[in-house]
Amino acid sequence: MNLKPIVTIVFMILFSLNNAYSQTSMPNINIKTLEGKTINSKTTYNKKGLTVYSFWATWCVPCINELDDIHNEIQKWDKANVKIIAISTDDSRTKRRIRPLVNGKKWDFKIFLDENQSLKRALNIDAIPHTIVTKGNKIIYRRIGYKPGEENYLYDFIINNSVAKN
């Protein structure tokens, strides 16, 4: 078995880890509103508190479970001074389902479209669901995947960090 390529890759990772620092912010990428208008991702954050960006798609069952679970307790979340943004990564196959689905579920999250996955790529997101929390424009938390109950952990994280801000 030729291990050379693996060694190269591992070497590269070690190199990069050495250089790691996590202070990143939302990149400057054009995404779209549900009506098809272009908007810059950098302008979407909550100016007064924290923002949760949830990357989802209409065909992704765990993504919908997470957003449903947040929606079911939305009154609790509303009080936490947090803006919830659901970024749909549906491409042209399924994007037409977004508006009926969101309204059929009565979600009142802000929804944006990342149709050719430019923002997803810029943030190096490989799989959804993927959740990002920003304070101002600065990323303070990221998570891949969703398991039932994780919305409670996210909620606690938001409460703790909102308090710290005040």
Partner: peptide, 15 residues
């Protein structure tokens, strides 16, 4: 051709 209508709690889409 694609068209849709939605109201709070209801949505329909046709393509």
């Amino acid at each position: 051709f694609n068209s849709g209508y939605f109201n709070n709690g209801f949505g329909i889409d046709f393509t």
